[in-house]
Every structure is written in C-alpha cells, then in structure tokens.
Design a protein around this nucleic acid. Sequence first.
DNA 1: CGTATCATTGACGTCGGTCAATTCGTGTGG
DNA 2: CCACACGAATTGACCGACGTCAATGATACG
Lengths: 252, 252
Amino acid sequence: MIKHVTPAAGKMMVNPCEACEVREFGICAALADDELNVVQSYKTGDRVLAAGVELYAQGEPMRELFNLLEGWVFQYKLLEDGRRQILKILLPGDFIGFQPNLDAPMDHSAQVLTEARVCVFPRDHINALMREHPSLAIRLTQMMAREDQHVREQITSLGRRTARERVAYFLIDLFYRLRLRHGEAVGAKIPLPLTQEHVGDLLGLTSVHVNRTLRGLREDGLIDVKNRTLFVLNPDGLAEVAGFDETLFDQT
Amino acid sequence: MIKHVTPAAGKMMVNPCEACEVREFGICAALADDELNVVQSYKTGDRVLAAGVELYAQGEPMRELFNLLEGWVFQYKLLEDGRRQILKILLPGDFIGFQPNLDAPMDHSAQVLTEARVCVFPRDHINALMREHPSLAIRLTQMMAREDQHVREQITSLGRRTARERVAYFLIDLFYRLRLRHGEAVGAKIPLPLTQEHVGDLLGLTSVHVNRTLRGLREDGLIDVKNRTLFVLNPDGLAEVAGFDETLFDQT
DNA sequence: CGTATCATTGACGTCGGTCAATTCGTGTGG
DNA sequence: CCACACGAATTGACCGACGTCAATGATACG
C-alpha cells in the first residue's frame, strides 16, 4: 500500500513500470514489456498526496500529467459565486490533466479525496512520447472515447434524470467501475470516501436532497450507507431504478 | 453549397481533400499537403443528408465515421420512457462517431438538423490510418481534449447554472463557436435551426421554460429571436449573464 | 471532553414543470 | 389568392420536485 516517505507531498523512489499495478487499465497498456523502459525514462517519479490536497487549480498552468496509481481524486469547476460542479471521480488507472493546449491555464481543478499516489510525467514530453510511440496516442484516443461514453451518461443524468435516478445511477456505475478494476473481489461493500455534499455537487443536487434520496433508496432495500461505506444490497434493483444499461458499459 | 445529386442520401463524387473547406478545423489539419492523398484513398466519399435524417442510432453498430463538412447535426440519448437528452450540437469540422470499441453498438444517436454534407470513412481503417500517420492520432487526442473542455462547461451548466444562465451560456458559446470557424463574418445575426424543444432537451429544460427564459433575455435587450434566427444584441452582457469566460475558450 | 465536520430531519419557499388554450408562420392544395 | 393544416411559439394557471434555512444528532479526533 502507500508508504509514507516524507510527510509533505514528497517524491518516492521511481517504481519500476513492470510492477505498475494499473498498467493494464491505464495508458501504458499500449506498450509491450520491452517498450516500458522508454516511458519510464520520461517519468518524473511517483508522488504521494494527502487527502484534501489540490492536484492542480483552475486558472493556473500545469507542468505535469498524472497517472493515478492509488486512491481517489475528483475534478471540479467553481463558478464565481462559489457554486461547485464536480466533473468526475477519478479512480486508479485514470490519466489526469491532458489538455489540448498544454501551456494554457487549466479550465478546472482537481483535488485528492483519499490519500493517493500518482505517477508523474512532465507535460512537455507527452507529444514527443506519442510521436515516438503511436500506440500511446491510439491508446489515449481509446481511453478518451471511453470517457466520452461515461460523460454522455453523466450529461443525461444531469439533464433528464430525477434525483432518485441520478443517485441510483451514480452508485451502480461506481459499483461497475470498481468491478472493472478489482473484479469480483468487490463485494456488496464499497468504500465511499465522499461526503453527501460531494455527491450533491457531482449530481447537481444539494446535500440535503442527496440525504433524503439516499434514505429513499435505503428504505426500498436497495442500498445501505454507513460510515462512508456503501452496501449495494440489490444491484439489479438499483440498476433498474437508475436506467443503467450494463450492455453499454464498455469493457474495452 | 450543397448540390443535390440524388434525392435520397446518395453519394456524391469524392471531392479532392485539397479543396476541403473544413480541413483546418477537422482531423485532417494534422496532415501536410502531400499526405492528404493517403487519407483520400481511405475515404468512401461525400454524402448529402436531408434535414431530419438519422445519421446513426443508439443500439446499432456503425460501420462508418464522419467528418461534418456542412450543416448542423446533433447527438442525443433517449431514455426508456422517451425523455431525450441532446448531448452536443455538431458544426462543420466536427468528427463524428468515434468509439473505443469500434464494433460495439452505439450508445447514442445522431440526427441531422439542417441539410448536411459529410465526408465518410469506413471504421475499420481508422486504427490502421492512425498507426500509419501518428499525427492523426495526436490530432484526434487534441480534438477530443478540446471537446472535453466544452463538455466540462456543459456539465457545469446542467448541474449548477440556472435556466437563465444556461440559455445565455448556450447562446454565447454558439456565437463564439461560429466565430471560430467563420471569423468576424459572423455578425450579430445567427441562424438557429433548432426548435425551443431542441434547446430544452439540450439544456435539461422544457420548451415552455426555454420560451419564457428567451423572453427574459429579449426583454433585457441581450438578444432577439425571430424565424429561427438569433440576434446577439449585446454579446458582453450575454456573456456576463452566462458566466462565460472567453479566456477559457480554447482557440487551438 | 470540547470542537469540528458531517448526517439527518422538519418547515417552508421557489424554480422550473405540467397542462392546455391561443397565436403565429409556413407550406399546401384548390 | 385564399382556406386550411400542421408544427412551433407563446402565454396563463397551477403544481411539485428540489432548494433553503435551521435545529439536532452522530462521529471522529486531539
């Protein structure tokens, strides 16, 4: 697990890419064993981040790109008056921070939810890397296209689903996303390091209404939530409430 | 403009890519003049589509990819009970239909708003093409990343902006998107081939409420709408209502 | 234990939805 | 050119899902 090397977000020793635990889920899945060295030579190192730390901030340029190795991160935007929209919950394997113009200031922020570990790359090299290894660029298009599918569901939730459907969709989707990474090892019991306010800001609701909606789902025997832990008691029922179509859940 | 070759969505003669009017906006911007031939050899041809035609449908696999050359298209998802969420309004230059798994059924549909012309590619060749021409893959990552920025704004609108802000944002964003393609030639007068129901389904509102919201903006002297035509009377005022930050509007 | 953060619940308000009638605009056939 | 049809826009009356405000509990942590 995470080893604390330095108290503040310090660098760790560079782990060998062969031992990377998210390789098959992340961008490096594009590379054969003997190509990993090249990527590793570009890599800055691994970094451990405490919960609550800002990975990067809206309005500021960013010099790095990240592979999330462990822990949860979320991306969000703030409006002038403080309203917050959470854009995405990032899980291990997700690639963070890619922008069309690598020098431009970021259009959103990212914050660490749980203690996390990221693999760090300097931005400047990403295009060179992709040019040398086209399979990386192709892999990136594939990952982005998968993310697009996810975003289309999210937009549909925000625009056309009721609060109950949105919450159900979020939970069942999380359930499936975690299964994709950890397989059947993910039982009904799922860690949920989000406050109800986070969930509200993700789903376009208030935390109060999230609370009431969770209660409704609990009363229907679909889920249970205790101590930042989610129990998915009835996945199929939850999927039905959500209008979740698992055949559209891309396994690529 | 569009020449009618056959009444039903027929093939047109393949236009030479050198003369392509959207080359600099689309994926082919990645290619030097002497590389265009290669792409052209993969191309199936151009196709003219009547307004209202379905380009592809949710649940069905698709064998083609499109470059939108002329006209407007929109992508949408339908829920079981008929609720519709419009995902994106596509303008000339946009690349349509890319998915992570090219054989999987589409997770959404696309429909033509105005008579349109598209440049057609067989799906099967896209990966080969990108492998042969890494710059195409890199260009695609760039286009997708730009699209991601747009989507982040859309999610923020749906989740956290009021109806008035959403409508204002949609209009000013459209204004800027068109300027990006046509420059200052785009005056205050903009064609708007969408019904108020389309706008509602895009913004997570009902057509009735869109109507009332447009009236509000009209009464404030910000816009005028007549006969499917939008007049942007006060772009800065509209941007202010929308919370539109043009410095984040990526020009890449 | 004292403090802080988050969850929970009730009372009440409002933004946007629903329903339905009327008007407008455009195209069509006579 | 007019009568009609049809889809879209517009408006009013009313409703309900979700938000706001505020009080109370629960939990964790130093």
